[in-house]
Design a protein around this nucleic acid. Structure first.
Lengths: 350, 350
DNA sequence: CTGAAAGCGCTTACAG
DNA sequence: CTGAAAGCGCTTACAG
């Protein structure tokens, strides 16, 4: 490997001068002639600075850890792309980690940080992580930003504008004429799940509608969770004419169960799901979704870890705003449901 | 950060002694008493060696780059898990990269290597990468292993046992009584696609069956590719009673198109797909798949980059062997197809 | 405007 | 059996 002193020798200057020229200079204390010679020499030798040496000297690693609970989740791919692009633009590398490790091997992140291998951590918490586990992370002096999970607490957070996204979904169904709308929600204890359910309730209230408790499930974001939710919902006495599904993964399960019962989407029931991923367009019918700014979330997370960023902040990403991606899983309700059945299903005591 | 000399001071020995004790010692030239004192001191101070310093000294980084074309692909998640577990066990970190970057920014990998940030590269090539691009990678002295793509050439390769997987799928359909079997294949120019098509042809031949060219498509692995393939297939004069789909992603698209035409799976047509991913169980009907040892592939790739590994090798992962995951998309053919229609569709010249 | 020197925190021949 | 010393390749006060 060619090193600084090689370039210096070729350019006829000291290594220090080369270092200064190549790093863009602090106070530009180099003559133009010298600068030219140095640049030419570096180019000719294809000089690339050694990362370990630089890191040892500066205590900066230009590396960020991206820790997520589930690489197969609907949100990961786009999130990772946003983070990667931003990282690339800043010359940072991204180290991948699974959030399970935080539990399986509590030393893992601590070791990564302790070894001085990373400048910061982007962390998406598994649903329902207790606040105590958050506190445990805070001790490390490495900056951490928690994404797509909690939106307050002792660590910096960045979340999506869940209220806007859910609002869009509800509005869409309203405009189609639906009044009986159910929610397939996230797991009880999921921070995004809570935000989305709250947003759903308030959007319904704003529209002058009510949703019986029986039309809202909280079983989680996975495909099987959606299937379980659909089983539960479809056994209600009365059915909603439309469902807002808080995550596209769950929507696949919902769709499967509806098919299994020989009901029709959107004929018997309309579906809108949060997050737009390729397979929303590869199901039958293709699913109408709300596209959320996930790559922007990823990019913002990188930004939040840069030296400039100050203290603990709580950010909501709402640019570009959530966008409805219209496909074929939503349509006006059919006349089968002629009665406005949105009433509280208060069951009599047994 | 506590450093080696701090531990040495507390233990009353030289830094050199601490280094030797902590690194497991070369020739164990330390008295038991000293070793105990050193270990105790390191533990008490929670000493973690600085990675940059060690890396600068040893020229090893304990970091592997994992470069893939598509994080949303059916194979990525499990592959990454296998690689990550193996890496974790060896104390390595994994840096994520997208294969697009190899084209967009040809400097990227070169820079990563040049900076001395990685010990090796695991690379899954985008379908149809020309061999010349492979040669370009070989110049770097950092070990590279190409996975899940080509199975020979100037770089080390690791692939799945595609022939065994496809054989399993064909056998399953045969046992159900199918004789008219089509193939939804990978992109023309996809190395795995070619292997799977070859395997399909030979499995059919072994079974004494023939598949007309019109029942074999080569449009790619994505969901939309599967949809396009289904459109093409379903417009044949005669239809096969079953399809082997070379990738689960494409199978979603196939399923969607079949639904769109109001045909039934498996009533009208059976489907088996390669790769078992969560959404195979979240569609309707759930899709029968062939599970391939992807996490083992990931782990093997890490192993292939370790110092012990010698020279260019070409490996096929076949343990555990591919496994049929029976779901509801396959069934015996219905009597509708009474005639063995597997004949070459040699069209007359126009 | 530029160079000589120190030092980041390790590891490892080389002595003793 | 253990220590003193050199050096990995940088960056950056400090001189001049």
């Amino acid at each position: 490997m060619v090193k600084l002193s090689d370039v210096a020798a070729l350019a006829g200057v000291s290594p220090a001068a080369v270092s200064r020229v190549l790093s863009g200079d602090t106070t530009l204390r180099v003559s133009e002639g010298t600068r030219q010679r140095v640049m030419a020499a570096a180019q000719e030798l294809e000089y690339v600075p050694n990362h370990a040496a630089r890191s040892l000297r500066t205590s900066r690693t230009s590396t960020i850890a991206l820790v997520v609970p589930d690489v197969t989740s609907a949100v990961f791919a786009e999130l990772a792309r946003g983070a990667e692009d931003e990282a690339g633009a800043r010359g940072l590398a991204i180290v991948l980690g699974r959030a399970e490790r935080l539990q399986d091997d509590r030393e893992w992140l601590r070791r990564l940080v302790g070894e001085g291998r990373i400048d910061g951590v982007i962390l998406q918490l598994p649903d329902g992580t207790p606040p105590a586990d958050l506190e445990a992370l805070v001790v490390q002096e490495t900056p951490i930003v928690v994404i797509n999970s909690v939106d307050d607490g002792p660590l910096s957070t960045i979340v999506l504008d869940d209220a806007a996204g859910i609002g869009l979904a509800v509005d869409h169904l309203r405009q189609l004429g639906h009044t009986d709308i159910g929610l397939v929600g996230g797991l009880l204890g999921s921070a995004t799940g809570v935000r989305r359910e709250t947003a759903f309730r308030s959007a319904m209230t704003d529209a002058g509608l009510r949703t019986p408790e029986g039309w809202m499930t909280r079983l989680g974001y996975a495909g099987t969770d959606g299937r379980a939710a659909a089983i539960q919902l479809l056994e209600s006495v009365s059915l909603p004419t439309a469902l807002v599904v808080a995550n596209l993964n769950a929507a696949l399960g919902v769709l499967a169960e509806i098919h299994a019962r020989d009901l029709r989407v959107p004929g018997d029931i309309s579906i809108v799901a949060m997050h737009d991923v390729w397979y929303a367009d590869a199901t039958w019918p293709p699913i109408t979704t709300v596209r959320m700014p996930l790559s922007e979330l990823g990019a913002a997370a990188i930004g939040a870890l840069m030296p400039g960023a100050s203290g603990v902040t709580h950010t909501v990403i709402n640019s570009p705003p959530p966008q409805l991606v219209l496909r074929r899983s939503t349509a006006p309700p059919t006349s089968r449901h002629s009665v406005h059945s949105a009433v509280d299903s208060k069951e009599p005591p047994p």
